[in-house]
Amino acid sequence: MSSRRPGAGPTLNFKAVLLGEGCVGKTSLVLRYMEDKFNTQHLSTLQASFVTKKVTLPDERRAQLNIWDTAGQERFHALGPIYYRGSDGALLVYDITDEDSFQKVKSWVRELKQMRGSEIALIIVGNKTDLEEQRAISYETALRYAQTVGAKYVETSAKENDGVNELFELLTQLMVAHHGSKQQNDTNALRLQNAISEDGVEPDVDENVPAVAAAHRSCCGI
């Protein structure tokens, strides 16, 4: 937490990672978001690249997005956990004209769910909507899948600058919401701990069940 403004509170720091096969447009999405540029030549990421961007939230707080763009080549897949460990959000990108890239997104979702559980905000991104006539995965199919895994679904075109800013704004909102939920859970846990410390008894009726059952067995000669 750093960089204060009068009345704005500390800057929220979020780590976000882009995952997906090679050539689906992950780097193009980042380039469009960061610099509003599009490179017509294929941009190949080696292992990972890292950029940061500061944004102002609707409530005037500041947030810093630390964005990791990972390589999509199969030989770099094993490095994924290094980059998404501790991430607050993930963009799982596929090419709407490439069914295999969509199937690979599913494997990334399973891996993230296993490693990060509900601690990470997920958005599945169907990129290259400028190639609509070559679409291989329907919007409805991708949306239904995203809903089954608790993720949001967004379609974009880095080339046409369609939906890119909205994508990163949504990701930021989801990470802020997760941050707020975690803070609330931590507060509730602290209150419960304090209540136990003050009363000397855990306020949980279920804790008495084993004792009651034991007493029942004793009086009944069981």
Rank of each mutant, 00 (worst) to 15 (best):
Q147R: 15
T129V: 10
E132Y: 00
N127Q: 10
K128H: 01
E133W: 00
L31W: 00
N165V: 01
D59L: 07
G25F: 05
T70C: 03
L112W: 03
L12W: 04
L31D: 03
Y139A: 04
Y94H: 14
A142Y: 01
L19H: 05
Y153V: 05
T11H: 04
I96Q: 01
K128E: 00
R217E: 13
G163K: 00
L170H: 04
G7D: 09
A214D: 15
L43E: 11
L192M: 15
T11N: 07
D199C: 12
H216G: 12
F168V: 10
H42A: 06
R61P: 00
D100E: 15
K26G: 02
K113I: 03
K37D: 01
E21C: 14
E169W: 05
R116T: 09
A8H: 09
D186C: 02
H179A: 12
A16G: 11
E198M: 15
E202A: 14
F168L: 12
A121L: 06
R61K: 13
H178M: 04
A48N: 07
E155L: 13
S197G: 08
R191T: 11
Q183D: 12
K113P: 00
R4V: 06
K37V: 12
E60L: 12
P58F: 02
T40Q: 05
Q103I: 08
A48C: 14
T97P: 01
D100A: 10
R191G: 02
D59Q: 03
D36I: 01
M115A: 15
L112H: 13
L29T: 01
V164I: 07
V24I: 09
T148K: 13
D95K: 03
N161G: 01
I96P: 00
I96V: 15
L92T: 04
S3Y: 04
V93Q: 03
I96S: 00
R85E: 07
R85Y: 06
V154K: 03
T141L: 04
G117F: 06
K128Y: 02
I67Q: 06
L112G: 15
Q193E: 14
E169C: 02
P10Q: 08
E35R: 13
M34G: 03
G200C: 12
L31C: 02
G89F: 01
S197L: 09
N66G: 13
Y83E: 04
D199W: 06
A189R: 15
F168E: 11
A189V: 13
L131E: 05
D130H: 06
A78V: 13
L31E: 08
S138R: 09
E60K: 14
E160D: 14
Q147S: 12
T148D: 14
V51G: 06
T52N: 10
Q64K: 15
V164K: 02
V17D: 08
V105G: 03
F76W: 10
V105Q: 04
L31P: 00
L18N: 07
R217T: 07
K106Q: 14
S3V: 02
K104Y: 05
Q147N: 11
L190R: 13
I196L: 15
A214C: 11
Q183L: 14
R217I: 06
R110E: 15
W68M: 03
L131T: 04
C23I: 05
T129G: 00
P210E: 08
N39L: 07
G72M: 10
V164C: 02
R4Q: 07
E111T: 11
A121F: 04
Y94Q: 07
L91M: 14
S138I: 07
